[in-house]
């Protein structure tokens, strides 16, 4: 490798090393078990467009944007086989009501908070992983990364209305998935002192 290229390569390596945990965390939320693949793809793509990076201070956001682009391209490839979820199935579900009706902790005065208190970060990542990828991506970008919906629409190259609809369904799916996960993994029993 020529000296200049070698120096650039070293600079890129130094730049990419620090945000690796953050990138891996985002990849876990966006791609679940394929997280490591997604980080690899992001690093390769970032290196190819390294000269586009305006300043090292912007590296964190730059890597994250490239990762979202990679995730978006993966979604497009999978797009044809995506199973649409019927909104009718979901619309009636309210986790708030469901917790109150099922009353998993009869002696609790803070039923809903106690239910959410059952979940740690790993549990929430597992619940997000159960969502179809095209609902998961907007959910993660909006409610974990805190990005505005218009920006998400631009990043995913989707009409705003599509993103809003995906968020609506994604929220319902997430609520139902939280309850299903708590039942399946017996979190509810732990919370009940069992």
């Amino acid at each position: 490798m020529p000296v200049v290229a070698e120096r650039e390569h070293r600079a890129f390596q130094d730049l990419a090393r620090a945000p690796l945990p953050r990138l891996y965390g985002l990849a876990r939320r966006l791609a679940g078990r394929d997280a490591e693949d997604l980080v690899q793809e992001t690093l390769v793509r970032a290196f190819k467009s390294y000269e586009d990076l305006k300043s090292p201070q912007a590296a964190g956001a730059w890597f994250s944007t490239i990762m979202v682009n990679c995730a978006r391209d993966r979604l497009r490839k999978e797009g044809r086989s995506v199973r649409e979820v019927s909104l009718e199935e979901l619309d009636e579900f309210s986790l708030y009501r469901h917790i109150a009706e099922e009353d998993p902790f009869p002696y609790s005065d803070t039923l809903h908070a106690d239910f959410l208190g059952l979940f740690d970060a790993e549990d929430v990542t597992s619940v997000l992983e159960t969502l179809p990828a095209h609902y998961r991506a907007p959910m993660v970008l909006r409610y974990v990364e805190g990005l505005p919906t218009k920006r998400i629409a631009r990043m995913l190259e989707l009409p705003l209305g599509t993103v809003l609809a995906q968020l609506h369904r994604g929220r319902k799916l997430f609520e139902r998935a939280l309850w299903d996960y708590a039942e399946r993994t017996r979190l509810l029993e732990k919370g009940d002192g069992g």
Binding site: G25, L43, D123, Y143
Partner: peptide, 22 residues
């Protein structure tokens, strides 16, 4: 809850492999 229950930990073996890619 969604914002707070997130972890950015990276397992050592994953970090080693990714640094290898780098």
């Amino acid at each position: 809850f969604m914002r707070s229950r997130q972890s950015d930990e990276i397992p050592d073996d994953v970090r080693r492999r990714l640094e290898g890619i780098l």
